[in-house]
């Protein structure tokens, strides 16, 4: 027999019932991506960590996981940056301020802040991977005293797909932030570098032993980013990555998000590289 005690019904939770949260603001960022500012009822705080996500539902349409893009240091509301790719995100893209969506969460482990504190922070974000990483970036900016230097490496397919343009400008202007951006293919107006994101890594000036990195991007990006970081000399134990898998429940029950034995919704989405190196399905 398995050694454990079944929980009593009083201590079990209605895991799937969302609370109704209000969309406060809708900002079109690019053709496909929109930033939503969302408020929980009665001014409740979401109470998340950078790297966590919520399950957003629209009744009759469904539910999907979205990373929390705002920093926990932003009070009262939180932000989600959503790319229109399918059924739910299409319907969401038509929603207006004042309308309500269901929210469950925050879920997932989030970034292990203790291991980033006192260190230089390197964020490597590809495409929509900037959405979750932005939570950490703004957290570091708002708590500068706890962290060393902030490096941000960001790549998008084209300059028209760059997200959070105002913030990108601020990061560029901020002498305290080492912000670098590249696009795979620039338009005629693009003056920055072109090429895939990994081309930016060799040029970074890093205090290798004292820099902790977090990577987030499309599935193909991880392996190449890792290779570049390793050949740069960044120790593996300083690398974290935020992964994406199909999710149906967000609470470690439905089985969809599994990477080998690990539940991304519960044990992830942010993984310490040495811990998932041995999981063959991870990268």
């Amino acid at each position: 027999m398995i050694n454990f005690e079944m929980v009593s019904p009083d201590n079990a939770k209605d895991l799937y019932l969302p609370v109704m949260a209000e969309i406060i603001k809708v900002e079109q960022m690019t053709e496909l991506e929109t930033l939503y500012t969302v408020a929980l009822p009665d001014g409740a705080e979401l109470g998340h960590k950078p790297g966590q996500f919520v399950e957003l539902s629209i009744f009759g349409v469904g539910e999907a996981p979205f990373s929390i893009s705002s920093s926990p240091t932003m009070p009262g509301v939180f932000e989600l940056g959503v790319r229109k790719v399918g059924m739910l995100t299409e319907v969401l893209s038509r929603m207006q301020p004042g309308q309500k969506v269901g929210i469950r969460g925050p879920f997932g482990n989030g970034i292990d802040l203790e291991n980033f504190k006192g260190k230089d922070v390197l964020i490597v974000a590809g495409g929509i991977g900037l959405v979750p990483m932005r939570s950490m970036i703004n957290y570091v900016i708002d708590n500068q005293q706890d962290f060393g230097k902030l490096h941000i490496v960001y790549g998008a397919r084209t300059d028209s797909e760059l997200l959070f343009e105002d913030e990108l400008e601020r990061w560029t202007a901020d002498a305290g932030i080492d912000y670098r951006v590249t696009v795979d293919q620039g338009s005629s107006e693009w003056t920055g570098p072109t090429g895939v994101i990994t081309t930016l890594i060799p040029g970074l000036e890093l205090d290798l032993a004292n820099t902790v990195c977090c990577i987030c991007g499309p599935p193909v990006m991880y392996r190449f980013a890792l290779m570049a970081l390793k050949s740069k000399g960044l120790p593996e134990r300083n690398i974290y990555m935020s992964l994406e898998r199909r999710m149906k429940c967000g609470v470690g029950k439905c089985g969809h998000c599994q990477i080998n034995s690990s539940y991304v919704c519960h044990d992830g989405p942010v993984y310490h590289y040495p811990e998932i190196k041995s999981l063959q399905e991870a990268l």
Partner: peptide, 20 residues
């Protein structure tokens, strides 16, 4: 008993545990 474990561990799920 194995399902009892799966639905109790981590986030205990009311649906299963109540029906059980």
């Amino acid at each position: 008993h194995r399902l009892d474990y799966n639905f109790s561990e981590g986030n205990p799920e009311k649906n299963y545990i109540a029906r059980r």
